[in-house]
Nucleic acid binder design. Structure first.
Lengths: 225, 225
DNA sequence: GAAGCCCATAAAATCGATTTTAATAATAAC
DNA sequence: GTTATTATTAAAATCGATTTTATGGGCTTC
């Protein structure tokens, strides 16, 4: 007999990715990273080549991104990168303060020892992550994960979902804006302070600090508009 | 000059719909209406026939709905109607209270005379809408529009977006639950009271009433799980 | 000279068919 | 009798081609 079974059962037995999901992840990252200009119209056939994927999975990914708010979809005239505006950034930042402080309060009440451990771990990974341009994606991932961990035990699935969505939107601005080393240093320090306040469950101080943290990031992100 | 000659765009002025957008709207309505059982796996080929649409636009609509949270998407195993649970309903309801009260406060500050007019109009349309089973969709539309109008001037695009999303989620429960005439009557009365408080800008009373309104709806919606 | 019209072109949207994967039934092994 | 393995079937995902719609240029008309 021949070998009609060269088809390895995909070493990962559980979750196999689809082309649509892969290109969704890549496009999402590239949109947040600022690979495309704000307001730019996406040329679908070009994307097809760039991401080495067929038309169907690509369109499905674009549809998901539009529903998520990282693209604008206009019937019969394709997809467009949303414009950046100082007004929208203000909206996003203010709402981040409200929602994240809300989640923080809950997280402080619900968080247990395991949470404290994971928070310390996440902070350490962030601290050690290399922020050089080549490793920037790694740092961004660690940063996102830190903020996720901080609020994770809040108990509200939908609140966390909205916060994540706003975070992605905010990062479009922040990552496009020129860096500010002085502010960046202060922001980095605040992560450690947040952990300390979390361990001590000093909710009011933590809320003030988190608000300050977001407002400082906002100061940086403003540079994008 | 003074030639108010709006360029006639083809035979369909304004926005021509795509098949994907149409089936998205229909599916969204049917999901909220409870046409499919919670937890049910959607048979794509069956939907294709039911909605009289091709595979591509149908899949695009399903992808959008999954990103919106009205469907679950599992790689390589299709789409599924999210299950209903008392815990998630609680999450949704509590968050509605928080977010809508937040928006209400802003709306009371930003709303002008034009807003007051539209609010009165929306309330009257709701009052007059027929709630009979045949006309139920009309009433639901008027109800949604009333709540939209109430919060519209709040100034935060993203807050309104999240509130609408939660409202859709909440309605899945409410519309599946058996009706309660006594509570329904009280809820209907509250719409008028909210308008009155809005006209007088009695923010604190209005916040209490809106919270009470959502909690009462919640009492009804609980009947779905 | 500007506005309207028509055609050519490019892009978006959709269709029909194919490929890939998961779910299920049937069979074999222990 | 149970578990493991293979074959079968059904469904999801993807591809390639076609249809539909928007866009831009050149022409005509007033």
């Amino acid at each position: 007999m021949t070998k009609p079974k060269p088809v390895e059962r995909a070493l990962a037995p559980g979750v196999s990715e689809t082309a649509a999901s892969q290109v969704f992840d890549e496009l999402k990252r590239d949109l947040i990273r600022g690979r495309f200009a704000a307001g730019e119209k996406l040329a679908i056939s070009a994307l097809k080549a760039q991401y080495a994927v067929g038309l169907s999975p690509l369109r499905e990914a674009l549809n998901r991104l539009a529903a998520y708010g990282l693209l604008e979809q206009h019937n019969q005239r394709g997809f467009r990168v949303p414009p950046l505006s100082a007004e929208e950034l203000e909206d996003i930042a203010r709402l981040r303060v409200q929602l994240e402080c809300m989640a923080l309060t809950q997280a402080f009440q619900e968080g247990d020892a395991e949470w404290e451990s994971q928070l310390l771990a996440a902070q350490h990974r962030l601290l050690r992550a290399d922020k050089s341009p080549e490793q920037l994606e790694k740092w961004e991932q660690a940063h996102l994960q830190f903020h996720r961990t901080l609020l994770a035990p809040c108990g509200s699935h939908w609140l966390l979902r909205f916060i994540e969505q706003l975070h992605d939107q905010f990062d479009r601005y922040r990552r496009l804006a020129p860096g500010n080393p002085a502010i960046r240093a202060r922001l980095d320090a605040q992560h450690g302070e947040l952990v300390q306040l979390a361990l001590e469950r000093r909710i009011q101080d933590a809320r003030w600090l988190l608000e300050e943290h977001i407002r400082l990031s906002w100061d940086v992100a403003r540079g994008a508009c």
